[in-house]
Design a protein around this nucleic acid. Structure first.
Length: 600
RNA sequence: GGGGACGUAGUUCAGUUUGGUUAGAACGCCGGCCUGUCACGUCGGAGGUCGCGGGUUCGAACCCCGUCGUCCCCGCCA
């Protein structure tokens, strides 16, 4: 290794030293890990971000430092100067990268002392997360977390290098923007200079990147921070990072390889693997029909099938569901793990409760059928089910769901599919199954608000061939939206955008956004589209999530330096906190909540 | 907004089912000894508002009510 990192305190990093360095004089600096004192011979494990090296302090050779070494404690900051020597015969530690050598210390200085750690940094023991978050700087000193962030850095560099190579320009966009009526709740920032008005933090740079396309940047990307004021999960933080990108003069087949390329470069660095390209593609319809979700986990081979319409009424659970009733079934071969009667009953009960569908099951063998639905199973349907199972069916359990429409039945079995795979241990934790889901519906019917809402966002272009249906049959209009899915997680979504002012107006129309409202909310967009907008499209890749999945982390908090708790608090900085009186009066705000009072 | 789990030395936990003497263990911490350790060893020591508040009881870590915190899930997140 070069002398990178060489400073007045250090010539080398601890973890980089090896047998090649024997005989050289080095200076290292870092934190003490374990100190093992034998009275007249002291060993100190010194750690920096690169790893650990053993310091050796011998009473015979450097008696003046022995006393100092004796006062040192774990976590203190040391600066040591000495010679790299080979360890004696039989004293090599194969568990340590630097285990063949040690530094015979000739000189050493205590640069800083430390309180005893509030929790062990070395141990693999699981420490209460609130404690870790409160002392995040110590938590981040632990090798596991530090490696996560270092690997994330390399992944980021790989993505940047790739995007640069294929002509993307990195542009930063503002945090203080106006609120746009998108899906999530906005974080608001009250303005001092414009009293009574607020900025909103971006939920994504969506409109800004479209403006950059109108401006002619042609290919833009950014590691964009996004903020959404919604409830959190293990894979959801209030602020997160997207690899946001947008391209001009493109169709789907121009964008998708870029998305695949970025992810492949990142995976190469993260795991040293070559992802097989291109990723498989599947229409939304296929995904829903076969997997009961728009983000199927292809690590699991189970697929959902439709009960042919002519047999639907022979399945007892379809009764009383009215017109449009649809039944679907999920065959689970015995090879997948044998399910007991009670286990099947339990699965069915939960699935029914959550979905509002009628669910039941039967056991299917080459000879016959048993279980709750076994008796009523008509022969042709039985043949149909057996055919869908393939050869190694064994004692297959078949779950059947009936819903008011095929989508609800499919969704019900889709979640059941996930639960069963999990329970049977049929999910290969190391596998990476990417795919694209395309041709999403453009619109969804919102029961609560009694109106059409965009399935993706209101700037998503409909598929050209479905454009004539926009006003007459909105439900049937497919969009150019596409999602990248990894192991059942939505990693990215994107679309070709509307670049035609008239089409945009029509979509707003179907969404119930009148001319005036459109002008008020998106005036600048419509205006921009009237100045020669190129056909454009792009995507945003959920970067924290991608890093988490590629590194095998259990939570986003393991790949983010300073994450928040599930209730949105930062336990180290103590944010959020009540504003003080001066801040409120500057902003022209009055505190009406009776919750935490403003600081005086 | 709803459901679930957890909360006891600095840390990780046991003890709570069935209320009963002085709340234990391991690691860590402090002090002594030790020239080949690397989970060092060894001898000794300190360390507790059982999350908080209230209730039941002769008596509460343990039972009840409330509350706070962390985590997971549903709703929500285009």
């Amino acid at each position: 290794m070069e002398t990178y990192g060489s400073t007045r305190y250090r010539t080398r990093y601890c973890g980089d030293l090896g047998v090649a360095d024997i005989g050289t004089e080095v200076k290292v600096a870092g934190w003490t890990d374990v100190i093992r004192s034998h009275g007249n011979l002291v060993f100190i494990d010194l750690r920096d971000r690169s790893g650990v090296i053993q310091l050796r302090l011998d009473a015979k050779e450097a008696p003046q430092f022995l006393e100092m070494a004796d006062t040192a404690r774990r976590g203190w900051v040391l600066n040591a100067h000495g010679t790299v020597i080979a360890r004696p015969e039989g004293m090599v530690n194969p568990k340590l990268a630097t285990g063949g050598v040690e530094i015979n210390v000739q000189d050493f200085v205590i640069l800083g002392q430390s309180e005893p750690y509030p929790f062990p940094l070395s141990s693999a023991a699981e420490i209460d997360e609130s404690l870790r978050l409160r002392y995040r700087y110590l938590d981040l000193r632990r090798p596991a977390l530090q490696q996560n962030l270092i690997r994330r850095h390399h992944m980021t560099q790989a993505a940047r290098a790739f995007l640069d190579r294929v002509g993307f320009i990195e542009v930063e966009t503002p945090f203080l923007i106006g609120t746009t009526p998108e899906g999530a709740r906005d974080f608001l920032v009250p303005s001092r200079m414009q009293r009574g008005s607020c900025y909103a933090l971006p939920q994504s740079p969506q409109l800004m990147k479209q403006m950059l396309m109108v401006a002619g940047f042609d290919r833009y990307y950014q590691f964009a921070r996004c903020m959404r004021d919604e409830d959190l999960r293990a894979d959801r933080q209030p602020e997160f990072t997207q690899i946001d990108l947008e391209m001009s003069y493109v169709g789907l087949d121009d964008i998708i390889p870029i998305g695949e390329g970025v992810v492949a470069e990142i995976a190469k660095v993260a795991r040293g693997i070559e992802l097989p390209l291109p990723f498989p593609r599947m229409s939304w319809l296929q995904a829903m029909e076969n997997y009961g979700t728009d983000k199927p986990d292809l690590r699991v081979s189970l697929a959902i099938h439709g009960v042919p319409p002519e047999f639907t009424e022979t399945v007892p659970i379809t009764k009383d569901l009215g017109p449009g009733v649809s039944a679907r079934y999920l065959p689970v071969p015995a090879a997948f793990g044998s399910l007991s009667r009670s286990a099947a009953d339990r699965l069915v009960e939960n699935a029914g409760k959550e979905s509002g569908c009628k669910v039941s099951w039967l056991k299917l063998t080459a000879e016959g059928a048993s279980g709750p639905l076994g008796k009523s199973l008509v022969a042709p349907l039985r043949e149909h089910m057996l055919a869908s199972l393939g050869e190694d069916r064994g004692e297959a359990v078949v779950f059947v769901a009936a819903g008011k429409n095929w989508v609800s039945a499919a969704k019900c079995l889709g979640s059941l599919r996930g639960v069963i795979a999990e329970q049977c241990g049929a999910v290969d934790r190391n596998a990476l199954k990417f795919l694209w889901v395309t041709e999403f519906p453009l619109l969804e019917w919102d029961e609560e608000q009694d109106c059409w809402v965009p399935a993706h966002h209101p700037f998503t272009s409909p598929l050209e061939e479905d454009l004539p249906l926009l006003e007459s049959a909105p439900a049937r209009v497919r969009s150019t939206a596409y999602d990248m899915v990894l192991n059942g997680t939505e990693l990215s979504s994107g679309s070709i955008r509307i670049h035609d002012r008239e089409v945009q107006k029509r979509v707003f129309g179907v969404l119930g956004i009148g001319e005036e409202e459109a002008r008020a909310k998106f005036g600048f967009l419509l205006e921009a589209l009237s100045y020669g907008a190129p056909p454009h499209g792009g995507m945003a890749i959920g970067y924290d999530r991608l890093v988490m999945l590629l590194l095998g982390a259990a939570s986003l908090r393991e790949v983010i330096a300073f994450p928040k708790t599930s209730s949105g608090k930062d336990l180290m900085f103590g944010a959020p906190s009540p504003p003080n009186k001066q801040q409120l009066s500057d902003l022209g705000l009055k505190w009406i909540s009776d919750a935490p009072k403003p600081v005086l």
